[in-house]
């Protein structure tokens, strides 16, 4: 495993709080969050609906501005309005509903949109669009309409549309929550490849615990607070905190905790195969 403590932090969140104001009622979005994410890290942010995880994502790419504290991404302060487009091309964001983030009826035109907005030269846009589609494995669809694609394919197009802007950080804000298992797998594999082969820093926001098992680090949110951070085995070793955060343990982890509480010498397993091996040892 890569040791990220030696690498530079690309995202620095310093004691940040944010509240939403509707009809004079303040509701806490996030409070007192401090978190650094290193360049090249695969960070998974877990939490139930309404735990504040999407608010945190919107703070990172400047859709929201903190009431307190400060966020810096690659040296850019998110509150610096003059550099907002610098920030947004550094932190690319993919959203939940694949249908609601496409602007053009032809896939390659959609991918080009971000670059065109940034004023990139035509030849360079062409190169980037082709590269981005290649990277997510959607090249053969480039002149087709996104309408007929599967959910997983649509999300890969959405990722390509962000990649074409050459960001350093990719945030996926619950981008897998509307997909079927096949689609989820496609998206997760694409993102993992981007992380391992292209060194892309990834912040994956989800409520699926099984997507978190291969992360470099996991953060757990509950009630607007970051209640837990650590490696997958550290985080999954804390079933009480996870339960309190209304999350469900992955199957193998739940089984290992059950065995541990029965007094058996078992390691906490994060996937089915390692649990099988533990059980083989035990039985």
């Amino acid at each position: 495993m890569v040791n990220f403590t030696t690498m530079a932090d690309i995202i620095e969140i310093n004691n940040v709080s944010f509240s939403y104001k509707t009809d004079d009622v303040m509701t806490v979005g996030v409070k007192n969050i401090s978190l650094n994410i290193a360049e090249g890290e695969f960070f998974v942010l877990l939490g139930h609906n309404g735990s504040g995880k999407s608010t945190l994502a919107k703070l990172i790419n400047g859709f929201l501005s903190p009431n307190e504290g400060e966020i810096t991404v690659n040296g850019i302060k998110t509150s610096d309005e003059k550099r907002i487009f610098d920030l947004r091309s550094t932190v690319g964001m993919v959203f939940q509903n694949p249908d609601n983030q496409m602007v053009a009826s032809i896939i390659e035109d959609d991918i080009a949109f971000g670059c065109e907005n940034l004023g990139v030269a035509p030849d360079e846009i062409r190169r980037r669009v082709d590269w981005a589609l290649e990277t997510v494995g959607m090249s053969e669809h480039k002149t087709r309409t996104p309408f007929k694609l599967s959910g997983g394919q649509k999300q890969r197009v959405a990722i390509a549309a962000i990649l074409a802007m050459m960001p350093k950080v990719l945030i996926l804000d619950e981008s897998t929550s509307m997909l079927d298992p096949e689609g989820r797998k496609e998206v997760i594999e694409t993102v993992k490849r981007l992380n391992s082969e292209h060194g892309m820093t990834v912040v994956l926001i989800t409520h699926y615990m099984d997507e978190a098992v291969s992360a470099d680090r996991i953060g757990v949110m509950n009630g607007g607070e970051l209640v837990l951070t650590g490696s997958p085995s550290e985080v999954f070793g804390q079933p009480e905190i996870l339960k309190e955060a209304k999350l469900e343990l992955p199957f193998p982890t739940a089984v290992s905790h059950n065995l541990i509480s029965a007094g058996l010498p078992v390691n906490v397993c994060l996937d089915d195969d390692s649990l099988t091996e533990e059980l083989c040892r035990l039985l």
Binding site: F251, D272, L279, C280, L283
Partner: peptide, 19 residues
């Protein structure tokens, strides 16, 4: 093209290993 449920997958894997 469907995944096995966790309980089934692990039970089958264990059976393969003679358990």
């Amino acid at each position: 093209n469907l995944a096995l449920p966790h309980a089934v997958y692990i039970t089958k894997k264990l059976a393969e290993k003679g358990i």
